[in-house]
Design a protein around this nucleic acid. Structure first.
Lengths: 197, 197
DNA sequence: TTTTATCGCTAACATACGTTAGTATGTTAT
DNA sequence: ATAACATACTAACGTATGTTAGCGATAAAA
């Protein structure tokens, strides 16, 4: 009888969630079927339900684990006694590295959250809105300081976050520059677009 | 008997395609059903097939009409006898305005092309790859001219295009700045991040 | 007015989906 | 060895989906 193999002391559920992330990224949440997932895991579809409650639960787990990581990071950054630009750069670098190293989850959380169902949906949207407001507030402070040029902060946030989601294309491209180069280039362009000179 | 009403001398097919764009944006291609679309159009699902060949055809039409508009624009811009930064700015402004005024189609083309099926899929991916190469080539020229700072051009393209797709959030936000303000802010940040100073 | 083509309807199809029930097999603890 | 548990299997369910066939109604052309 086939059995889900759990390397690296992962629970079987974690194995399923991880494979789900890959699948949801490749095909989209709706287009990825539980039978697809079962095949990826090496088991029959019904067997998955010994470990998870529903397909949507997989999406919850992915979306909220990602969201929580970003919330913790901004908690941390806000407390630092540094300049605004430094804070912005720190957040951007975190975003970039999350997108590089936890590609599947972050991508799914970014693009597939629409398929969450209430109350998770509203919850997620709230968290997202609040996160962006806090990010914008940091930029606003920078503008008051004259560290950052006079722009619309929410627009700046929107540009930053979406620009970073473009790392998706980097992952898919054949001739990749290194992760470090990518990070430095992105920071150069994005921070360069903000600072007052 | 209900009839598809065709204001503004649109064909009935065009009405369907337009409504499909809205629906595909809201729910995603896979999650939007032909019965949903039929309801939006005010007709029974089966009746749609008097005007279209299949659900996928709707996606083709949307994706390629958008792609063609961008290809025509870059044809035009490449021929101009202006500096690289000016060309980049012109392309960016075009992207921004397309995203503002043809939101639904552009968004769908951007996010749902994965659900195209071959040969349309490979075709679309090719066009996209070529477009980005041409965009990158303009940036490369700018770098050689010292108009643009020394960065990885493909990464710059990726940032630009994805940043612009963030206009999605602007559309959904309640307190919007004006379209003109949005455009100027985006240009300021994105071009500001590129130029050599 | 008659004819013809266009368009919408009802009914139904085959397929794919998420999920459950019940049972067998393998693993761990006593 | 045996009991208890965890995990996988087969079979099946109800529902939703894209699409087709065939028939009536409407609009356009004669």
């Amino acid at each position: 009888m086939a059995r889900i193999k759990t390397d690296n002391n992962l629970t079987r559920k974690e194995v399923i969630v991880t494979k789900a992330a890959t699948l949801f990224r490749e095909k989209g949440f709706k287009a990825a079927s539980m039978r697809d997932l079962a095949e990826a895991v090496g088991v029959e579809a019904a067997s998955l339900y010994n470990h998870i409650k529903s397909k949507t639960e997989l999406l919850h787990e992915l979306c909220f684990s990602v969201a929580n990581r970003f919330l913790h990071k901004i908690d941390e950054v806000e407390l630092e006694k540094t300049g605004s630009v430094e804070k912005i750069e720190k957040l951007l670098r975190f975003h970039i590295n999350e997108m590089i190293h936890h590609y599947e989850e972050v991508y799914v959380s970014d693009r597939e959250w629409k398929h969450l169902s209430d109350p998770y949906l509203s919850n997620f949207q709230n968290q997202r809105r609040i996160y962006r407001k806090r990010f914008a507030a940091i930029i606003e402070t920078g503008i008051k300081n004259k560290e950052v040029k006079s722009i619309d902060a929410p627009t700046a946030v929107l540009i930053m976050l979406h620009a970073i989601s473009g790392i998706e294309s980097w992952h898919r491209s054949v001739q990749k520059i290194s992760a470090e180069e990518l990070e430095e280039n992105m920071i150069s362009i994005l921070v360069g677009g903000l600072v007052n000179r």
